[in-house]
Design a protein around this nucleic acid. Structure first.
Lengths: 322, 322
DNA sequence: TTGAAAGCGCTAACAT
DNA sequence: ATGTTAGCGCTTTCAA
């Protein structure tokens, strides 16, 4: 910028004025400055500007895996809101590792992002307190924060799973299996609770062997399925706890050539063509609402932390029938 | 940091030394400093550090849509390499809009990202020249840069499409349709060329009506399909130009209850269960290689711009047969 | 309408 | 082993 000022024969401050469209610069002077900018290929150092002004116009997004369709859809809707608010977006994948989540988050705090949207893997976010006190806005999404009070946008996990399982029950099923995820994952536990609730409401008592709460792998899901579908009293229907489980289960069932009724939490691409009944969450809206809440907080909206629960939709496509 | 220094009763520089693990600080002094850091909830302002040191330890990724599975897989592999190199990652979606791509890119340049990975929508990247001259590293991925020389990592689009179409021909098909994307998109044109090549090599002359080069929409694909599959000489097989087209075509065919042979460029989740034959690109490796090249350039590797072409893999799953 | 000087929070270079 | 000074590139404040 110094070079630009020299070239245009004006003071530093005048260049700054032109670049920021501040009033009080003669048209001719402004023209000369712009010309110099062009000739030098000058690009303002945003970092220095930020240092001086104290607002970074950037937000961070921490999630489990940007490569997962559920999270990438979330990321996209958040990016749109960030863009609309003139912010750039940092993204980071925690891989479900609390230490990596924390490291990533603190790195973003050091960069002084204005706000953070976190789909947490950790259950303790007290480490964010100094930054929040210093003005950082944080909204949690998909899962609640741990040991701090903060805004959070969640799906109706219990209600959604309950609806899905109730649908299977309406189709006449009595022995229904649930394949979830590791119990430390909030959504997994909530959806399992929804399963139990639906069963209880129908007067059904699930056998212990009908419930699997493990981190989903191809091998693990196949084992769980052979266990549930073998023996003298096999389950006749399955409810899967998330999109990854559903996909793994569909593959395993195809390989085993078994065809129980099946439904799952989360919609996924081509579920329609495969005719798979799902409980869909509105991922796009969830991200949008979380990001909009973040920007309202940044704009100064006060009030106690909100807990927004998004409804889910049962989409019956046939796989749950019979 | 000033506050920390005051609290620990040392000079600013000593705090800086402790925070950077620089040698020459007594253990006891360091302890006092760390204590003060803890008590004050101090977090170093990375922006100021960057301003002083001139390296941002961040890179940017510009792609069409972070919500698209193809690109989100790419993003994930790039994020991993960035993480391994101690960088944070900015992501931005251009929505196939050259102006948005440019705006996003320049915003990142102003933030002084160390490097940029771009899956370009624009065909003119001369606007990057000043930044490249100033030391910015840029690697293009999926599509080549426009009007500048730069490193690029591409899939073997011509060869892949050719292999896919040749596979259909080997199954006995003679009238084969191609549904691509807008011709201004590099990959679309390349894959169409691969289609023509395979046809020509088999001595087949494609009818004009067998080729559709439009931005894929549900309606557009359905129309193209009814045109190709209607009439007295319908095509008996289809080759789709990318994952989105393939999915739209599968949906349209199911709705129309038509079952021509089909194959497509790009693998996609559940293609295995649907038995769809595809030409797969190794997205993860493509991102990894692009990002690694970027970091080699940042580490000072000289030499003329590279053009790396990644092989594709034909995965026959049955949908191309008969 | 324009400019000079101070300072954002940090680190490099040079004392002590 | 520790401190002092200058300055990264910009904006803010105040003056002309």
């Amino acid at each position: 910028m110094k070079d630009v000022a020299a070239r245009a024969g004006v003071a530093l401050k005048t260049v700054s004025r032109v670049l920021n469209d501040e009033p009080g610069v003669a048209a001719e002077t402004a023209r000369r400055v712009r010309e110099a900018v062009e000739e030098l290929g000058f690009r303002r150092n945003e970092g220095a500007r930020i240092l001086r002004r104290g607002q970074t116009a950037s937000i961070g997004l921490i999630l489990e895996d940007i490569g997962d369709p559920f999270y990438s859809a979330l990321a996209r809707s958040i990016e749109d809101i960030a863009h609309r608010n003139g912010s750039l977006l940092f993204t980071g994948s925690s891989d479900e590792d609390p230490a990596r989540e924390r490291a990533l988050t603190l790195a973003l705090c050091s960069r002084r992002v204005d706000g953070l949207v976190i789909a947490p893997a950790s259950d303790d976010h007290t480490y964010l307190l100094p930054d929040i006190r210093a003005g950082l806005a944080v909204v949690f999404v998909d899962r609640p924060p741990g040991r701090i009070e903060a805004d959070v946008v969640l799906a109706d996990n219990v209600g959604g799973a309950r609806n899905g399982v109730a649908h299977l029950i309406r189709q006449g099923h009595r022995r229904i299996g649930f394949i979830g995820d590791a119990p430390r994952i909030f959504t997994a536990t909530q959806r399992a609770a929804g399963y139990r609730l639906a069963m209880a409401e129908a007067g059904l008592v699930p056998d212990d062997g009908w419930i699997s709460m493990e981190q989903p792998t191809a091998v693990g899901v196949r084992l769980a399925l052979t266990r549930m579908l073998g023996g003298p009293q096999p389950v006749t229907a399955l409810f899967c706890g998330n999109n990854r489980v559903t996909v793994l289960a569909l593959r395993a069932l195809a390989a085993l050539n078994l065809h129980p009724a099946i439904a799952g939490f989360d919609d996924f691409e081509l579920a329609d063509l495969l005719g798979v009944t799902v409980v869909a969450q509105d991922t796009g809206n969830m991200g949008r609402i979380a990001a909009e809440l973040l920007y309202r907080r940044l704009a100064g909206e006060k009030g106690r932390p909100q807990r927004i629960v998004m409804p889910t939709t049962l989409i019956a496509r046939g796989s749950a029938d019979s």
